[in-house]
């Protein structure tokens, strides 16, 4: 059993979670317990959300054939039934992805499909469809000396009467080989997220990780275009910003879990509190430095 830090929770885990920071907080009881054990079998009488996910009255089952099964209960307990060896990175990809998003929903937090960068004590959220370049751009910010709070999935705390807060995840970026090479991140000796994919777990050094929760400042939706039109930047106003449910990590799953109210309330508060822009980028990694400059300059734009 080891204790780890994730989104401010104390996580006690029987499965080694090498991506997470050790718990350095108080002596509280664990907020989340990760056990290794038998996951309840599929319930043939219940409909499945998908071939991988079944939502049951007492918990959610996530099944990755040939990797592991997961049982996610009440935001406080996860049972992992490994098929691969317990230390396989493949098991943690889904635990720290979809399973973590389900935990957030169960705990009333909004899981966001975004990488989070600390810019002067407030958070730049980099979102966009899969393949738009969130992780690559976050890693480029990191290479410039900025601290990240998360890569790909971060949690938003939405409490009545309190400001919105982005919670820090763990010091790791997932990079495909071509992005890593372009950013001159050495990949020798790095762990692959899946045995078969050249996508790597790139750890962030302590100085490049922000372990404290910070308020959001700006949301950027990235999208790739072969030849981005000028100007490549478009501000999303009102309903247009509100309806960008793709900001939510697996929003359809969130709806299936009964979190409509959380999603709508969080989106409304975000759209109200934070400017939202869409930025078109080229697929050419050589354009990254200019993209960092452009996105960085957003923070200096007049608000309102």
């Amino acid at each position: 059993m080891s204790d780890y830090h994730l989104f401010g929770w104390r996580v006690q885990s029987a499965l080694p979670l090498s991506e997470l920071l050790p718990w350095r907080g108080d002596a509280r009881a664990p907020d989340l317990v990760v056990e290794i054990g038998a996951v309840p079998p599929m319930d043939p009488h219940l409909p499945s959300f998908s071939p991988a996910v079944q939502i049951c009255p007492t918990g959610v089952r996530v099944a990755m054939p040939a990797v592991a099964s997961y049982w996610v209960e009440a935001g406080r307990r996860v049972i992992v039934q490994p098929i691969l060896p317990e230390d396989a990175a493949d098991i943690r990809v889904f635990l720290l992805g979809t399973v973590l998003a389900i935990l957030c929903f169960q705990r009333g937090l909004l899981p966001m499909h975004a990488s989070a960068v600390d810019i002067d004590g407030r958070v730049l959220l980099l979102s966009g469809v899969s393949g738009a370049g969130k992780s690559t751009l976050a890693a480029a910010f990191s290479a410039r000396g900025y601290r990240l709070l998360s890569d790909d999935l971060c949690a938003l705390e939405v409490r009545e009467g309190h400001p919105l807060m982005v919670l820090p995840a763990f010091p790791r970026v997932k990079l495909w080989r071509d992005s890593a090479l372009h950013l001159q991140v050495p990949i020798d000796g790095l762990e692959r997220i899946r045995e078969e994919l050249e996508k790597y777990n790139v750890p962030l050094v302590e100085a490049r990780f922000q372990p404290d929760a910070l308020p959001p400042a700006q949301i950027v939706f990235l999208r790739t275009e072969r030849a981005p039109e000028r100007p490549p930047l478009r501000r999303l106003i009102g309903v247009e910003a509100l309806r960008r449910y793709d900001l939510v990590h697996r929003w359809r799953l969130g709806l299936a879990l009964g979190c409509q109210a959380l999603i709508f309330k969080a989106m409304a508060r975000l759209a109200d509190a934070v400017p939202v822009v869409e930025v078109a980028r080229s697929e050419d990694l050589a354009d990254l430095p200019a993209l960092v400059d452009m996105v960085r300059a957003l923070g200096e734009m007049p608000r309102g």
Binding site: P51, V62, V129, K199
Partner: peptide, 27 residues
């Protein structure tokens, strides 16, 4: 489209192998 797949399955295709994507695509 990746988004359609990811939202429908609840997992990111970018974390999946070719065989896993091909197996789940029909659903």
């Amino acid at each position: 489209g990746r988004t359609q797949f990811d939202e429908s399955i609840g997992l990111a295709a970018s974390d999946l192998t070719d065989a896993e994507i091909l197996a789940w695509w029909p659903s």
